[in-house]
Design a protein around this nucleic acid. Structure first.
Length: 519
RNA sequence: GGCCCCGUCGUCUAGCCAGGUCUAGGACACAGGCCUUUCACGCCUGCAACACGGGUUCGAAUCCCGUCGGGGUCACCA
């Protein structure tokens, strides 16, 4: 039985790199008919774990990465919060102490620092001297009388090597003498990550530890803990980390400023920001940017697009398959085909997956998704009538592939929902204040009065008649017409716009524009 | 700096383990064109990589050695 886990710390947001790691865990578990669980690494957190966790769980749900055990769903080994498992850790610490695999240590941070600096000055690797190690309870009491407080350290082997099989990297060797006597329990009794993680993985029956490469160098000490406790070792697989756009550095949300200098990243960011603004969302660069999953949900990306893109960051099936349904992902995933080199996050490529999935989306679903954005933006009031839905379907269809994310409806179709739209900067000058443009537009306005029915075909026919009669080319009028009616220089086909708007609104809008340029 | 990992187009990658079919394939991006006098889609074309140097071999992107480069990690963080 395969059991994998992802262990987020409650930080308040879901990082795109973390999702990639979680996805591989999820895929591996599903591929082998096993379980995927979520464990909360909150040994370090003080309060508000629930609040900081909510967005993360929400993100997983949104992406369709369901967990079999963990917060909110429980499970046979609950609780899955490290902060609630202290007794288990304490038992492990006691056992380690009793077995001589750990010791109580009373060095002060200053003393440790001095040793460290000395080692550095002598250009030799630092290894704690164990000078303040308490070998007996009497030692401990003596140290305590001196006013020292004790922590528990691992008593690491100081010779030999550990050879480990990593499912992604093959055989990896660790030199025991390079390993520090890591602290596993603080003076206040709280335990540290490595201890907690190993105990949890064992207690939760984790069979495969699939995590990012930065944990590779942690593995030896974790193996030491596990073996000292008599645990059978899980399989390990260390994934290459997700790197910054256009670089090999690890992606981090702290370096947003830098990423914004990347053209593609900036483009995707600005596009999302514009939608957020149209929605009246209060955003800060810290919580709303393309490194964070919530960004994509707010803007109206499709979970399938994100998942598909992420799966291909460091994994491939062959030299051509790009698109995978969830089932195909599950059927084909394997750790053997994970790449060893880091893969940089390319927002434009994600965008292209989004484009693809959006095009595949059935019309009615597209309508539902865009409708939600129109409601949020206050352009459509709830409840939404069947009639309004019908109309929106026409608009969505006319907008077609221009709608890349659901939020794009606000950019391409706001003028359908309000007559009081504003004109794109310079558009009036460029298209309507041109010599003769207003006159031609007015003439066509008159012609529009008699188009019957007021639909795409007849409108187009009327236009062509008009062009012939006036002896002009379509470019001489169409731009002015578009700007007058929609306020924009780009958008759906002009006849679609006219027909969808209806005769009265078109005539009124042309009047409004004409009045503006003539005043 | 020590230790470890990695190195194919700008980016994601196929090929490497089992050397020849690789004048290195696909995708994204980019450039040009067609379509459409908008934008988008679509279609066509183009640009573009085996980090370098030695070996082994009839033959190396593929095997070996070295160099260089990039990154990760060295906590009483997770």
């Amino acid at each position: 039985m395969v059991r994998t886990r992802f262990a987020p710390s409650p930080t308040g947001y879901l990082h795109i790199g973390g999702v990639r790691t979680a996805l591989f865990n999820w895929l591996f578990a599903r591929r082998h008919g096993g379980q995927f669980l979520l464990r909360i690494d909150d040994t370090d957190q003080e309060r508000n774990v629930e609040a900081a966790l909510a967005p993360i769980l929400h993100g997983f749900r949104w992406l369709g990465l369901d967990w079999d055990e963990g917060p909110e769903v429980g499970g046979p080994y609950a609780p899955y919060y490290q902060s609630q498992r202290l007794p288990a850790y304490q038992r492990a610490v006691d056992k380690l102490l009793a077995g001589g695999f750990a010791y109580r240590d009373f060095a002060t941070p200053e003393e440790l620092q001095t040793e460290r600096e000395t080692a550095q000055a002598e250009k030799r690797p630092f290894l704690y001297s164990r000078r303040w190690m308490a070998e007996t309870p009497e030692d401990a009491q003596r140290f305590e009388r001196e006013g020292r407080s004790g922590v528990v350290r691992l008593r690491m082997p100081r010779e030999g090597t550990l050879r480990l099989k990593d499912l992604v990297r093959g055989e990896v060797d660790f030199d025991w003498a390079r390993e520090q006597d890591h602290v596993i329990q603080r003076a206040d009794g709280t335990c540290l990550y490595h201890l907690a993680s190993v105990v949890d993985d064992f207690d939760f029956r984790i069979t495969h530890v699939i995590r990012a490469e930065e944990h590779l160098s942690n593995t030896a000490r974790q193996v030491f803990i596990a073996q000292s406790l008599g645990y059978a070792l899980p399989e390990y697989a260390h994934l290459p980390y997700v790197a910054e756009p256009g670089s090999k550095n690890k992606l981090s949300k702290r370096k947003l400023d830098k990423y914004l200098k990347n053209r593609d990243f900036a483009l995707v960011n600005e596009h999302g920001l514009a939608i957020a603004q149209a929605l009246g969302l209060a955003t800060t660069a810290d919580t709303f940017n393309p490194v964070i999953v919530d960004f994509y949900e707010q803007v109206g990306y499709l979970p399938d697009a994100i998942i598909n893109y992420l799966m291909l960051l460091g994994w491939s099936l062959d030299d051509k398959t790009e698109f995978f349904s969830r089932q195909q992902m599950i059927d084909n995933f394997s750790l053997e085909r994970v790449t060893k080199a880091p893969a940089s996050f390319d927002p434009k490529k994600l965008w292209s997956f989004q484009d693809h999935y959006m095009q595949q989306l059935p019309l009615d679903e597209k309508v539902e998704r865009t409708l939600a954005f129109l409601v949020r933006a206050g352009l459509v009031a709830e409840p939404v009538s069947a009639d309004a839905r019908q109309k929106l379907a026409g608009i969505v269809q006319a907008a077609g592939d221009r709608i890349k994310v659901s939020g794009d409806i606000l950019a391409y179709a706001d003028f359908f929902f309000t007559d009081n739209f504003s004109y794109e900067p310079d558009a009036l000058d460029k298209r309507l204040r041109k010599p003769g443009a207003a006159e031609l537009l007015e003439k066509f306005r008159d012609r529009m009065k008699t188009v019957e029915p007021f639909e795409i075909g007849p409108l187009e026919a009327a236009m062509h008649e008009f062009l012939a009669a006036e002896n002009i080319k379509i470019g001489d009028i169409i731009h002015a017409l578009r700007v007058a009616v929609t306020g924009k220089s780009v958008g759906p086909g002009i006849y679609d716009c006219l027909a969808l708007l209806g005769r009265d609104r078109c005539l009124a809008r042309i009047d409004r524009a004409l009045k503006l340029v003539r005043s």
